[in-house]
Amino acid sequence: MSIKVRPLGDKDFFPWLGLFEGYSEFSKSELTDEKALRVWSWIIDKNHDLDGAVAVDDNGDFVGFTLYRAFPRTLSGDVGLFIDDLFVTSAVRNGGVSKSLLEFAREYAKAHNYRKLQWITTADDKPAQKLYDEVGARTSWVTYEAEV
């Protein structure tokens, strides 16, 4: 099976939605219609920072996606690309699709003169960490969040 990774487009909503539902379930996050439509509107709005790509198999089925956005790196005086989400269906997981999506994001960053890729994962997602240790460097930063 070969995989093609390409940017998400206006007509990709329903196949992407199926993946986003799977991602939400995997992440144990409730997905509402409102939330899905809001995220999709961000993706297709050329004036919004969020962008994305999809992995498509030989049959034209969507088997993975990634969402990313530019962010300023103040101490470096440049811009990086932050990968917010990366998801691959269980049927093709561990088959190189995640790596292809990360490589697409890397090429996107290069094309836009962004200097770094950054992403996070959960502390217990060992399979993802194994891949991420191969394609990137684990940092010493600790992430915090607070409700507003």
Rank of each mutant, 00 (worst) to 15 (best):
R138V: 04
S76H: 12
G22V: 09
A36F: 02
A123L: 13
V56D: 09
F20M: 03
G95Q: 02
D49V: 09
T143D: 05
F71Y: 15
D78E: 10
R69C: 02
D125Y: 13
P15F: 07
N113Y: 08
V135S: 01
F65Y: 15
S24N: 07
K116S: 11
T122G: 15
V88E: 07
F82R: 00
W42L: 03
T139A: 10
A53P: 04
L8G: 02
S41I: 04
P7I: 04
G64E: 12
Q118S: 06
T66E: 06
R69H: 13
D57H: 02
P127K: 08
S76W: 09
Y144G: 03
A123Y: 09
M1V: 12
S140D: 15
W141V: 09
F14N: 06
G64T: 14
D12Q: 09
S98M: 07
G95I: 00
A137Q: 13
K4Y: 05
D12T: 00
P127V: 06
L86R: 03
K116F: 08
D125E: 14
A128I: 08
R38A: 08
Y144P: 03
R38V: 04
P15N: 10
R106F: 10
K4W: 00
L86I: 09
D84N: 09
G22S: 13
T143I: 10
Y23I: 01
L67T: 15
K99E: 12
V148H: 04
P7G: 00
D133N: 15
D133T: 04
A146H: 14
G96W: 05
S2Y: 09
K126E: 15
P127N: 01
A105R: 01
E147L: 06
F26R: 00
G64A: 08
F62P: 00
F104D: 00
D12V: 02
K35L: 03
F71M: 07
E30N: 11
V39H: 09
E134S: 14
L31R: 06
F26T: 01
V5L: 05
L50N: 05
T143E: 14
Y132N: 00
F62H: 02
V97P: 01
V148G: 03
L17V: 02
